[in-house]
Amino acid sequence: MIVLLTVAIAPGLALFSFFYLRNQMKTEPRKTLLQTFIYGAILTFPIMFLQYVFKEEQVFTHPIIQEVFFTGIIEEFFKWLILLLVLFNNVEFDDPYDGVLYGAAISLGFATVENIFYLMSYGVHTAFLRAILPVSSHALFGVVMGYYLGRAKFDVSSSSIRFKSLALLAPLTLHIVYNLIFISQKHWVYIMIPFMLFLWWFSLKKVKTAHMALVELIVNKNKDSPYR
């Protein structure tokens, strides 16, 4: 059991450490990050319950609606809602890169608990594939979500509502595409590989932009907007 928990938790910790250590300008309060991770972990239970009920009651007659759209929508919506209601106005959310970290934290909290349940059901031998696909994709969806929330809060030259909407719609679109590829055909792996490469490229581009905005915000505190 200890081995299973270690294997299930390790990918999430590794991915979060990767994004956390990229920020060399300041240290984000670890208590708030841990709380955000816990929020994501707690979210796993109501989301899995709703998914189970909707599937058992056959609310959606077509499996694509259930497995692709409903799953993606409910997972990303609740993560977005918690970030917006609990963390967006938190005093410790005080720079653009914080959004990236909070988005990654809440997504990895969810992905880690989900991963534990999955490995308990299907065995440790699935751990590697789970790490490089579901766990990492959740982290990257969270990064994209957090990036746009950071822009909503700190990019005063643009509409906050626009970026708050993008914080939900961008990761939701990516999640739906991921789900669609996963169940689409027998040789899904040949489509998933380029998609995951794109997802990493797209997310790391957002990470770089958020970090540059943080640097500029620190250097030029009196400027109207850190974004260019």
Results as ranks from 00 to 15, higher is better:
residue 1 M to Q: 05
residue 2 I to L: 14
residue 7 V to E: 01
residue 7 V to G: 08
residue 7 V to C: 02
residue 11 P to L: 03
residue 14 A to D: 01
residue 17 S to A: 10
residue 17 S to P: 06
residue 21 L to K: 15
residue 25 M to R: 15
residue 28 E to A: 07
residue 29 P to D: 11
residue 30 R to N: 10
residue 31 K to L: 06
residue 33 L to F: 03
residue 35 Q to F: 13
residue 43 L to R: 11
residue 49 F to W: 15
residue 50 L to K: 00
residue 51 Q to I: 13
residue 53 V to E: 08
residue 54 F to D: 06
residue 55 K to Q: 10
residue 61 T to L: 15
residue 62 H to D: 15
residue 63 P to W: 05
residue 65 I to S: 11
residue 69 F to Y: 12
residue 69 F to D: 10
residue 69 F to S: 13
residue 91 V to F: 10
residue 97 Y to C: 02
residue 98 D to M: 10
residue 99 G to F: 11
residue 100 V to E: 05
residue 102 Y to R: 00
residue 103 G to H: 02
residue 103 G to R: 10
residue 104 A to W: 00
residue 105 A to F: 10
residue 107 S to R: 14
residue 109 G to D: 00
residue 111 A to V: 01
residue 112 T to A: 04
residue 113 V to Y: 00
residue 122 Y to L: 02
residue 124 V to W: 15
residue 125 H to R: 15
residue 131 A to C: 03
residue 136 S to Y: 05
residue 136 S to G: 01
residue 142 G to V: 02
residue 144 V to W: 02
residue 149 L to D: 14
residue 150 G to H: 13
residue 151 R to Y: 06
residue 154 F to H: 13
residue 155 D to P: 09
residue 156 V to Y: 09
residue 157 S to H: 14
residue 159 S to F: 15
residue 160 S to K: 14
residue 161 I to Q: 10
residue 161 I to R: 05
residue 162 R to K: 02
residue 163 F to L: 15
residue 168 L to D: 13
residue 169 L to T: 13
residue 177 V to D: 04
residue 182 F to Q: 13
residue 182 F to I: 00
residue 182 F to K: 10
residue 188 W to G: 05
residue 190 Y to M: 09
residue 192 M to W: 00
residue 195 F to T: 00
residue 195 F to E: 12
residue 195 F to Q: 12
residue 197 L to I: 09
residue 200 W to Y: 14
residue 202 F to Y: 08
residue 205 K to G: 05
residue 205 K to F: 02
residue 217 L to F: 06
residue 218 I to P: 03
residue 218 I to M: 15
residue 219 V to F: 13
residue 221 K to F: 11
residue 224 D to F: 13
residue 226 P to S: 05
residue 227 Y to Q: 09
residue 228 R to H: 09
